[in-house]
Amino acid sequence: MSVNSTVFIYITLSSWALFCICWLLLRNRNKENIQTRTSRQRFMGALGYLVIFTALYMSLFIQGHRLLPTNLYIQAIGAILCMVGVATAIWSRVLLGTNWSGGVTAKKDHELIVRGPYRLIRHPIYTGFVAAMAGTCLVTGGWSAIIVSTIYTLGLCMKINREETLLNELFPGTYAVYQQHTRKLIPFIW
């Protein structure tokens, strides 16, 4: 592994560390859930993050685990994508404020946020997280990173459908209009 590759790895690790710090700092600053999450659900969420981050960096510890070629241009693009993804997720999380929840659940006095990145996409935290995972995959290049990122993204698509059903129930008519003017996950595309 070259010195330049190491820099890109540290950039992604620093980005993810910032993501985790922000999530920890903001974790208890939420409105009360109408339906509370169980301890098991919270544990499974934390375990999910552990699995994702382990898979993203596994290629650094296992010889022959790398699927993508080591290319500084690809890794530079990956590091930038990771930084932009984490910044988008954090910005979106801050804007969502006390309405955020780790699970699909309504909050007391739930508000529909439509500013910042929410003007273009309905789920910018997920967009940022997926972009950061994809960027990390380009940097580390491991097959486990690519597999877990793909599985996680597919799972997010299912979660998005549940969230959109809930938001349509919470904001009848208003959310449907919002859906017509925004995209789910990828600005201007989908």
Rank of each mutant, 00 (worst) to 15 (best):
L26V: 06
R66G: 02
C82E: 01
W16L: 03
M83T: 15
G85N: 11
L60E: 04
A76F: 15
Y73N: 13
R42H: 11
G85I: 04
L60Q: 11
Y49T: 12
F8H: 12
N4R: 13
N33Y: 06
A17N: 06
C20R: 06
L24Y: 05
I74E: 01
R37C: 13
L50M: 10
Q75M: 09
Q41K: 11
T38I: 08
S39A: 15
E32A: 13
T38S: 15
L68S: 09
T6R: 13
C22V: 04
Y10T: 04
R93E: 05
H65R: 08
N30Y: 07
M58E: 11
C20Y: 04
F43K: 00
L81Y: 03
A89T: 04
I52A: 01
G45K: 00
I80Y: 07
P69A: 06
A17E: 04
I34Q: 12
L68R: 07
N28W: 10
R42D: 11
Y57V: 03
G48F: 07
L81H: 01
V86Q: 01
I62Y: 12
E32W: 06
N4A: 13
T36M: 12
R93Y: 03
M58W: 09
M83C: 14
G64Y: 12
L72Q: 14
T6G: 09
T36N: 12
L24G: 12
L25G: 08
W23A: 03
I11V: 15
S92L: 06
F19G: 00
T38C: 13
R93P: 02
Y57N: 12
Q63W: 10
L60H: 05
I74F: 02
M44P: 06
H65C: 13
T88E: 02
L68P: 03
R42K: 14
M83N: 08
L25A: 11
T70M: 10
L72G: 11
G78V: 01
T88W: 03
Q63D: 15
L24I: 02
R29W: 09
I80M: 12
L25T: 03
L13S: 10
I77C: 07
S39T: 15
I77H: 01
L72H: 14
L24P: 02
G78A: 07
Y73E: 09
V84P: 00
T38E: 09
T70G: 03
